[in-house]
Nucleic acid binder design. Sequence first.
DNA 1: CGGCGTCAGTAACGCGCGTTACTGAGCAGT
DNA 2: ACTGCTCAGTAACGCGCGTTACTGACGCCG
Lengths: 338, 338
Amino acid sequence: MADVAKHARVSRTAVSFVLSNRENASISAETKHRILEAVQVLGYRPNAGARALASQRSDWYGIVTEIVTAPFAVDIIKGAQDQAWLDRRFLLIAPSDQADASGPNKGMEDAAVEKLLEQRVEGLLYAATYHRAVHVPKSANEVPTVLINCFDADGKLPSIVPDERAGGRVAVERLLQAGHSRIGVVNLDPDIPAAVGRLQGCREALAEAGLELDPELVVSGHATADGGYEAACRILDKYPAGAGRPTALFCLNDRMAMGAYDAIKERGLAIPQDIAVIGFDNQELIAAYLRPKLTTVALPFEEMGALGVQTLASLTAGQPITAHQQMVDCPLLERYSV
Amino acid sequence: MADVAKHARVSRTAVSFVLSNRENASISAETKHRILEAVQVLGYRPNAGARALASQRSDWYGIVTEIVTAPFAVDIIKGAQDQAWLDRRFLLIAPSDQADASGPNKGMEDAAVEKLLEQRVEGLLYAATYHRAVHVPKSANEVPTVLINCFDADGKLPSIVPDERAGGRVAVERLLQAGHSRIGVVNLDPDIPAAVGRLQGCREALAEAGLELDPELVVSGHATADGGYEAACRILDKYPAGAGRPTALFCLNDRMAMGAYDAIKERGLAIPQDIAVIGFDNQELIAAYLRPKLTTVALPFEEMGALGVQTLASLTAGQPITAHQQMVDCPLLERYSV
DNA sequence: CGGCGTCAGTAACGCGCGTTACTGAGCAGT
DNA sequence: ACTGCTCAGTAACGCGCGTTACTGACGCCG
């Protein structure tokens, strides 16, 4: 910077003024031009660290997530990353490989937060790979923190979660609209927030159509393709065709839908002609490659990530946020299984 | 830090000495203990930026990749991230959403590199989502740079790539070992490095068994499930069962294998009893969820990421690196399709 | 007793920048 | 001629830390 000043025959202060775009600058247009030229000529590149030190603000946010590489976490990160980039901020991503906050290496998560705080991030994002309650390391309280795809077990921190209920509703509405009135549900572990919300939405949609959810048609299984296969088998084999057998399956996630596909095809049935299938999550690698491609409800990970950064921006700017818990819509993705 | 010094009744220098673990410290054990205690009591946390500024080294590496969220890029990032964490370094991830370096917003990639340099990263990683030649922004030359899963079109920068040939070899060796001698190949675009290497490995393995690759059995298609389906259909329908029809399919990626599964099942054939299938890439969401689970050759993304960081560490330490282009093994993952 | 080498610790500088308080020139108004 | 004001720009401080050069006390040797 001193070199630039010398080259432009001005003081370092003048250079600083020009580069930080002060509005009450009092730098003549000609001088400014000379300075910018010098910057170009010398290939000057500001030092972000020094800038942060002097200005007492880093323009950095940090994000911590249990499994950085989980397909979902990735989308959250992308959304946050892109939004941060737009806001000319940098997103620091700290790894913390552990599925369960009460797991063995609980320390790693704390260390990650600690590391981020050492970098003097102005805010923290904490993301989970599936919708649930979490315990956040306490040092996170030193800085504004927003939870994504999870909520604070202690209820203190603002959070952003998918609107599971509306999602379940839109899925079932789509099936109803296609003429199905007898719908089987391939359920997740019934206790997790995702299952609770989605199933409630399902019931609401049915109720609006004057229908009720037949408990016989709701079968839970592991959240895997195998689990979906088994659950679908049980549903399909419960009744003969036409005599109470559902004509559509609402699978509460795409992995289970994948298994359900196999169960259906195995029985010589066609999708969607004989049995329609709708999934949830929009796990691209599955949904878009199944044959036929799977109609599903998307979890809005990127949107949640972006909203997280926006919320953080409000928070750090001292503005109030709209709500303690913000819900994001889960859009229906039409493909060919309904 | 001044507070800590005051609390421990020593100079700030003494605190600095203790915290940076200088071996020629000349700080008595008792004083050191007093200082560390003060750190605890006051909850002091060093400022990474200031430290970087003063010490003239940031301990930061940067990574740029075209599509941060591509399933492959993610694994590379994870490998690099973990290794960096072990080396007590921070990995800054810069987004750059573009598949093609000659694409419309070429500027974004340059901006990403620029941003990283402003953070004063000590080294740069540049990762591609599929193995190929790339052009790296020229400002990357200002700092040690290592390419991952790609190589420099100009041949200047060190790179790390998968050993496609050995991978193709191990895949076909596995099929041979299972007793298959007539093997169909569901090929990618034959011009890309992945296809060239894998097919060469395939030929080598066959040659060692005294066999030759029948050109009739090699069919190219789009690198998608549909492409794989079509290619597999053409291979299977070329000969009647037993009369020249291959008993195994080597699919050059897992997405195509996914399509091949459908083609095989459609014809009433069982995997692996009637037709064995082996894939490539180990795209977890596909390979581990197909039924039966797909035996495949894994692309060593995490290893490449980790090796990239290690190479960068050598480079920044001024040490020579082992080779201009390092190849990483592609291990066979046995599942149930062979 | 003087000189010399540890040991334990400190004062002071500088990293690259943002920022505040100041200066000096020019000009209008009384 | 003097005051007051705006414009254009500068000197100097401090952000939090690493690092170098120094000091003062103590013990050992000749």
